[in-house]
């Protein structure tokens, strides 16, 4: 993935870009959080790395990772 910031563009394209970037960020977050938890990161570490609260990251990802059989460290870890 390479990033270059274009000087300008149609507003419709720039609005669509925001939706696409959000989708991309969500996908990158899903895979990165899963990899972190599979390799022994704790919830507080992942939360701090993302700049969100432990509760937020737990609520967003715990159910999916538990369903996938990922061994999760304790939330206080």
């Amino acid at each position: 993935m390479s990033v270059e910031i274009p000087a300008s563009g149609e507003v419709a394209d720039r609005l669509a870009a925001i939706g696409a970037l959000r989708h991309l960020a969500d996908r990158l977050e899903d895979t990165a959080v899963e990899e972190a938890m599979r390799t022994g990161w704790s919830w507080p570490q992942v939360a701090e790395a993302l700049g969100v609260t432990r509760q937020a990251v737990y609520k967003k990802h715990a159910q999916r990772l538990i369903a996938a059989g990922v061994t999760l460290r304790r939330r206080s870890g």
Binding site: P6, A17, L24, A67, A68
Partner: peptide, 22 residues
């Protein structure tokens, strides 16, 4: 195309989560 409008070019496929959301 929309990502490209923000200057982001995907080289290859988007990473797929190994687990679908619940």
């Amino acid at each position: 195309t929309s990502l490209a409008a923000a200057g982001v070019h995907l080289a290859g496929a988007l990473p797929l989560p190994t687990t679908p959301p619940t």
